[in-house]
């Protein structure tokens, strides 16, 4: 039982993200994504680029089931997320960390509590949760700020909190939508180094950005979307 489960996971694990002819249409007659097929291997780091409105955010949303595809199949960790039951969505999201340009932190909660939310929803015992949160905050260099509130932190620090929240569950996949869009160049590198670090530890990472400087600097695989269609896919 366990063995066969392993094998299935392993097959998906080689390419935890696969899209086959995926289209997404919010409004009849116009496509935010059109016939997109791609495969991303385990531990791979991928930039998703393209002009504004190209469909980058839409693609990420499809991956964590915030939106459903209009056509095509999306396999995440071997599961067809386009057809996922509503009740199965939380389990998927616990395996995927997500960060956004605007951080999406809870302003009334401390840094520690913001990170802890991700463990609370999984029912992690308090003692274990506290230890994990501390470790995670240390990793992003914010352990000394754990009792502060997000709004008293700099933008870069807030994004580090958001990253800590996304990674504290040790997710297999990290999705980042313009994670450095609000940050100056120095803080951008700080965040990107953390994201790249996660991928070297085996997490599959997709970073959506239209910052071409960033893309060139890191020299990673880059998938370009244009008007919802697949453009270049440079290794």
């Amino acid at each position: 039982m366990r063995g066969s489960g392993r094998r299935a996971t392993h097959a998906g694990g080689e390419s935890p993200i696969r899209l086959y002819h995926v289209s997404k249409s919010y409004l009849a007659g116009s496509f935010a994504l059109h016939d997109v097929s791609l495969e991303i291997r385990k531990g791979e780091f991928v930039f998703l680029t393209g002009p504004s409105g190209a469909g980058k955010t839409t693609l990420l949303k499809l991956l964590f089931a915030a939106e459903r595809p209009s056509e095509g199949q999306i396999l995440v960790r071997g599961r067809n997320v386009g057809r996922l039951r509503e009740s199965a969505v939380p389990a998927l999201r616990r395996r995927i960390g997500v960060v956004f340009q605007d951080f999406k932190l809870l302003p009334r909660r401390t840094v520690e509590e913001n990170v802890r939310v991700a463990l609370d929803v999984t029912g992690t015992p308090p003692r274990e949760a506290r230890a994990k949160v501390f470790q995670m905050l240390k990793q992003v260099g914010l352990q000394h700020r754990r009792f502060h509130h997000p709004l008293s932190l700099s933008g870069g620090e807030q994004q580090r909190v958001a990253l800590a929240r996304a990674l504290v569950n040790e997710p297999e996949i990290l999705l980042a939508d313009e994670p450095t869009g609000n940050l100056d160049p120095e803080l951008t590198l700080e965040i990107m180094d953390l994201v790249v670090g996660a991928s070297t530890r085996g997490t599959t990472v997709i970073v959506a950005t239209h910052d071409m400087g960033l893309v060139e600097r890191y020299g990673k695989r880059t998938i370009r979307l244009e008007g919802g269609r697949m453009g270049e896919d440079l290794q």
Binding site: S87, V89, A91, K104, V117, V121, R165
Partner: peptide, 8 residues
Amino acid sequence: ILSLVGAS
């Protein structure tokens, strides 16, 4: 945010 991090 709760739903994003996988709250049931």
